[in-house]
Design a protein around this nucleic acid. Structure first.
Lengths: 101, 101
DNA sequence: GTATAAACTTTGCATCACAAAGTATTTTCT
DNA sequence: AGAAAATACTTTGTGATGCAAAGTTTATAC
């Protein structure tokens, strides 16, 4: 049977799932790019990023090189690992549905 | 890109996702069997079943054949359809992760 | 120096999951 | 027959949380 307890609530939330998928599939995302891609408000986006950062799934990089601030986010090793096992649950759900279509 | 807006919140909730997966993979489930399988409290389980029923994703069948009441639940056509497109999003996430492992 | 942009923080609201406990009905046990 | 147990609920309460909107800070462009 599928182990639903293995679903990490930190990742499972829709907004954070999309963030994690984006971060996992591409190296680095600027705050503004994430915001544009996901169509989220500043406050909402940063809250989710904070939650992911607090879980050590995401790391922020502040670029203070004199120019306008540009914060980028990338997935951590722990984040990759957690996301991978999360995706494994998804995969088992997908597989369980395959026979019937 | 993956269309996260296509994720149905009614289904995406962990508890209901497990219920839907069980109902989609097997014809019919008695209330007691779902409860045992998922380890949920009566109140919590019935609430989620009500939400799924209200969304027309699940149909309940009351068996009043003189014996002790036995309510069973099965997925509806609309539920199968909604769950299928939900699983398609999962599949696209899984696929997006495949290249990197 | 006014306006704009980035990256926040704060506030407030509304939803929601979940447990615990209580209820009605019926059935099994003694 | 009476007590206990089981099914399928309902009710209540609490705590968490998603989200938008608006305000804040700092810095840059004009």
């Amino acid at each position: 049977m599928i182990d639903f307890d293995q679903i990490d609530k930190t990742i499972h939330e829709k907004a954070r799932l999309s963030i994690m998928t984006l971060l996992a599939s591409r190296g680095e995302w600027a705050f503004q790019d994430l915001k544009a891609e996901l169509g989220m408000s500043d406050g909402n986006l940063i809250t989710h990023l904070r939650i992911l950062t607090a879980a050590d799934f995401v790391k922020e990089d502040r670029d203070e090189s004199g120019t306008r601030p540009r914060t980028t986010y990338k997935i951590t090793a722990a984040g990759k690992k957690a996301f991978k096992s999360y995706v494994e649950v998804l995969e088992s759900i997908v597989k369980a549905m395959k026979p019937q279509g």
